[in-house]
Each structure stands twice: as structure tokens, then as C-alpha cells.
Design a protein around this nucleic acid. Structure first.
Lengths: 342, 342
DNA sequence: CTGTTAGCGCATTCAA
DNA sequence: TTGAATGCGCTAACAG
């Protein structure tokens, strides 16, 4: 039954190598995992045999034997379109890859935008097809989090934490403090003497939005009344629409705190179209340090998240949890990047 | 050694379930894989025991036993920037997921933009961590293709084939015929009576570019002389620059065949800026049916690739190859989508 | 229809 | 330092 059809020629196993080298399978295994308990000459012997037979360790056999798949699942539940438009995930992913490199553990991406995909990914996790999960988009979704906790796998939440909420003790989390970042932006604007400040934020139901708003308010208090706070989508066209509305409601505005760099770019476009100069008439601060921030005209002052660093930390944390460590919480600092726009 | 620390309580195995239900492990296995050879009552018995013990099949043990990981690797080597700006991959991926759904096999994404990532992914494949590979970006890279062939896994190339080149017999391939698509575009333009036609294509070193150019020439022949064919990048700003150049070289132009929808959008912007109306003064046809094609003003006439269908077919092909079928080649039709621009 | 038995490919304990 | 023996968790051929 094992091997229903004839074995493909050339898929050598440790047994084949052992025979070829005239040693035991245990010795071959030791060489593979370069154990110090092997004589240089037997080691050479085995390595020669490995070369001759074209042997490659079989991941499935190894996984069963060592009790690990040497794989971490990177879960992305974000809708595809957003994912493929927003370099945020690309950068975090790069960090994860770096952080895992050298560990012998491979990051493997689980795209789970739909309910069905989510179910499949969870099934894999339940079955222990990976050793840990790094969740890149842990937006409020208690059911998913419960399901993840239910897998019994180490889980690292990366990049989001609702401010105020105590971190979930079931998971590790890595996040940058949106509230503190927003404070940086608001402080910068306030110190520059602007006082007719408005905010154009992302979707109200997104924790990043509420956190950023709170940061703005921490600094500005009554100088940022509710009627000057607009909520819209994350992208440029949403920024355009919202800014048009804003200028009707509050034409005296001399500074705009944007919820994202793309929103900020939309705001600049509208202001320019209406003959208002940025930053002399209206200062603008973005958020995220998206690539367009540097190339925008004028270049955007913005708040940078250490995305790649987040990914690296998430990877390290996952590895430590696989090794038995308890969940930890890491908070990273946001950074104000001053450019021309405000 | 197996189980170095105490076993986490609650990770039940078939043996536990068997004991709990008072049957053999084989019977438990039969229930899990719902074999018809089990009495309804024993089945209930076992399912109860499964519920009580919280048993979940372990993917590693199962993979070793059945000789498959029940996983296909989706390889993406595209540089991140392009990848995250182009919804193409998102759509193909959606198709792959659909095509695999119900098969019990899960798509798992291997992001391999860098050389190091590529090496890691290949190592996984060599080790048979997946049952097949769907390569979404098989641009000319003979070394990578050789490496993939070397894994001995079934491989499906999706979405690219150099025209003229015989399909590589080592792999299955799924592709849409760029040449035929380009012919559709050129024919549509020629039939509308335009005759001062120019083309603004993507990078010359990209097979899609040369294929599309060939399709244009198949139809237009000498009516599309080389001096009216420009090559640039894939995106809007590249389209803007190239169109400006084009208008200097060939101001009489009355129709533009664009190598991508983003290029076409750039062209429209330049033409509008110069006071030329689209399509009355200059007709434009894009390529790809990118989301911006429908929302552009005027909406773009373009050539649609059946991306999702490509993904589905790739998935089906991969499953068939896993089942032992030889490589196949599938060509899908492009479709002319007529909108306002030409 | 069910249980017994064996083995997938590897890592590791124990004894030599 | 090496080999023999054992088991990871599961499936499947075989016998009953």
C-alpha cells in the first residue's frame, strides 16, 4: 500500500544512502543534521553517498520524526485588492522572511480573505501543518482569534492592537503605537503654529483610525472639534472626496492631519485644484510613510511605522514560542518623518 | 526523544480515539476518511469518541502515510513592487483557490522575490513539502525552471508562454494568447477606420510586449511602422512620458494601441492636456482589463485575459498531474471588451 | 464489516 | 564514535 505504484527511481531515502555508504541509517541522519559525533572520514563517506544517490531529506518524514513542520504560517485575511495595493504587507513579509532566515523554518503565506479560505487555513493549523502562526491582519474578529487560540499553536499578532484593550494573553503581539504616532503628528503641527486644524481619517470601524484620532485629540483637545474630523476610505480617491467635503464645511482650515499618506495625496490634489498652496496655505501630515509619501509633490511629512522591524520581531517571537516561551508583547516606536508638506 | 517534554494534554491521536470508542485504529481511520466500509453505528460510536477527545487528524502523520502533503505551492517570484501594484496575481490566486476547493488540497504561497527566498522555496520543494508547484510568474529564467524540473514535482506554469517557443514538455502550462489578443485590438481599431495608428508598449524585454507587438503587426503590417512603436514601463507615468514623446514624433496620430491599461490611462491624460478628445480625435485601446479600465474617463476599450479561469485551470491541472497525468498545455482566449475609448 | 499487521522516512535513545 | 531498535501518527493490505 505504501508505494502503490513503482517507486520513482532516484528518490533516495536515508536507507539507500546508508547502504551506499556502508553505514547505518542513524549515522546518515547524524551527518544530515551535522552532529559532532561523527568522524570526519565517515562524514565524508556519507556525504559522498548522498551526492551519488541524489538524496534529499524528505520533509514529511522529518516533520513526523521531530514533531515540527519547520514552517510558520503567515495569515493574511485582508481582502485581496487591498493587499495587493498596499505595500505594508510586502514590507512586513520581508521582515518576517529576514527574521526567519537561518532558522531552518520557512514562512508560508495563507491567503484567507473569504470565509471558505479562512476555514481551510484554520483546518491546516488545527492539523498542525505549521508550527506557529503569524497573523498579519488581526483586525477585530474575536471568532477568528478564538479559533486560532483553539489550534493550540503559538500565535503572534502583528501590527494591530486596540489601544486600551489589554493585550490578549493567549497570543504574542507586536505592534507600533498608533496613538503615540498620532501624537507626534499633532504635536508637530501644533508647534508649527497652525491652529485651524482638521483631520481626514480612514474608516471609523478600523482600530487604527480610532487610535490615531485619540492621539490627535490627546495633543489638540478642543482645538480639534468633532465637526472637523472626517472619516473616509484609506485611498487617494477617498481622500479627494473627503477633502472636498471638508473645504465646504471648514474653508478656513490651515492644516490637515491625514489618516494615511494616500488620503494626504488626495487632499493635496484638491487643495492645488482650488488654488491653495501646500504647505504655505494648508499644512498636511500623512501617516504610514508609504512610498508615495516621498515622491508626492510636495513630499509628505508623515509618521513612519517600522514595518520590516515588526516582521522580524514577529518571526523571532514565533521561533521563541515554538521553543516553548510564553507569549510576549512588543511595542515599537513610530517616527516622525519631516518633509515638505507640513 | 519523541516527545521530549510532556505531551500537551488534549492532543488526541487515532489510538486515543480507538481506545475511547473501543474499536481499532484502522476503524477510526476509516471513519475519518469516511470509508463506506463502516457500519453506521460504529461510525457514530467513533464520531462520538472523536468529539469527546477533541481529536483532529495530524497533517504530518497523514502526509507521511499517504505520501502526499495535500498542498500545492504557489510560487511568486515577481519583485514586490510590481506584485503589489498589479491585481493580476490576486485574480489568478483567487482562481487557484477556487479550482482547488473541494479537493482537500490547500494552496500555499511561496513568496520568492529574492535569490535567498527562491533558494528556500526550492529547498522545500526538493524535500517534497508540497505535492505540486504552480508557478505564477514563469518569466524567462531557465535556471529556475531547471531547478523546478529537478524537484521531480509536477509543475504548472501559469500565465506566460513565449510565443513561438515550443511549450516546455517538462511542465504543464496555462496561458492566454497575447498575440491573438493583440490581433483583436488591432482589428477593432482598423475596422473603425483609423489609419494613423501608433503603439505604446511595455518593456521590450518582456515576452508579453513582443507578443503583443507581433499581434498588432499581424493585422496592421506596414500600417504600423517601427517608428510609431514606442516601448516604456507598464505604469501610468511611463505611459505619460511615452505618449508625450509620441505626440512630438507623430502628431497626426489618430489611434493608440497601448501595451497596458495603465499606459492607456497615461496616454489619455496627455491627450486631454493637449486638448485632444478621446476617442473622437484619438482612439485608444488598452490591454489587461485592469480595474482602472472600467473607471477611466472615457472608459477603456481593452483586451481581457481570463485570469481567474487561468488560476482554476492551473489548479485542476496540478491536481491531475498529482494523480499521475502527463503535462498538458492549455491556451485560453482573450476577449475584446469594447467601452468608450476606442 | 472489523482487527491485525506493517510501514511511510526520519531522528534518537540505548548499548556496544 | 557507531549500530540496533524504536516510535512519531497515520493509512492500507490482508485475513477473518
Amino acid at each position: 500500500m505504501q508505494r502503490p505504484r513503482t517507486r520513482a527511481p532516484g528518490v533516495a531515502t536515508v536507507a539507500d544512502v546508508a547502504r551506499e555508504a556502508g553505514v547505518s541509517r542513524a549515522t546518515v541522519s547524524r551527518v544530515i543534521n551535522d552532529s559532532p559525533l561523527v568522524t570526519p572520514q565517515t562524514k565524508d563517506l556519507v556525504q559522498d553517498a548522498i551526492r551519488r544517490t541524489g538524496f534529499v531529506v524528505n520533509a514529511r518524514g522529518r516533520a513526523l520524526a521531530i514533531g515540527r513542520a519547520e514552517t510558520v504560517g503567515v495569515l493574511i485575511t485582508e481582502p485581496l485588492d487591498e493587499l495587493f495595493e498596499d505595500p505594508t504587507y510586502a514590507r512586513i513579509l520581508r521582515g518576517v522572511t529576514e527574521g526567519l532566515s537561518g532558522s531552518g523554518t520557512l514562512p508560508v503565506i495563507f491567503q484567507a480573505s473569504t470565509e471558505a479560505e479562512r476555514a481551510l487555513a484554520l483546518r491546516s493549523f488545527d492539523r498542525k501543518a505549521v508550527d506557529a502562526v503569524i497573523h498579519l491582519t488581526p483586525y477585530r474578529d474575536p471568532e477568528l482569534l478564538d479559533a486560532l487560540a483553539g489550534t493550540g499553536l503559538p500565535v503572534v499578532l502583528c501590527g494591530q492592537v486596540e489601544n486600551g484593550a489589554a493585550p490578549d494573553p493567549r497570543f504574542s503581539s507586536i505592534y507600533a503605537d498608533d496613538v503615540a504616532g498620532a501624537r507626534l503628528a499633532a504635536t508637530h503641527l501644533a508647534e508649527s503654529g497652525r491652529d485651524r486644524i482638521a483631520a481626514v481619517l480612514g474608516p471609523l470601524d478600523n482600530p487604527a483610525t480610532t487610535d490615531r484620532l485619540q492621539g490627535f485629540r490627546d495633543v489638540l483637545g478642543p482645538r480639534l472639534p468633532s465637526e472637523r474630523v472626517l472619516f473616509t476610505g484609506w485611498d487617494t480617491s477617498a481622500g479627494i472626496r473627503a477633502t472636498q467635503t471638508l473645504l465646504e464645511l471648514f474653508p478656513e482650515v490651515d492644516a490637515i492631519l491625514a489618516g494615511s499618506d494616500r488620503i494626504a495625496v488626495g487632499a493635496i490634489a484638491v487643495l492645488n485644484a482650488q488654488g491653495r498652496a501646500v504647505p504655505s496655505d494648508v499644512a498636511i501630515i500623512g501617516f504610514d510613510d508609504h512610498p508615495i509619501a516621498a515622491s508626492a509633490v510636495p513630499a509628505l511629512t508623515t509618521i513612519a511605522q517600522p514595518l520590516q522591524r515588526q516582521g522580524e520581531l514577529a518571526a523571532h517571537t514565533a521561533l521563541q514560542m515554538i521553543a516553548g516561551q510564553s507569549p510576549t508583547v512588543s511595542e515599537l516606536d513610530m517616527r516622525l518623518v519631516v518633509r515638505a508638506s507640513g
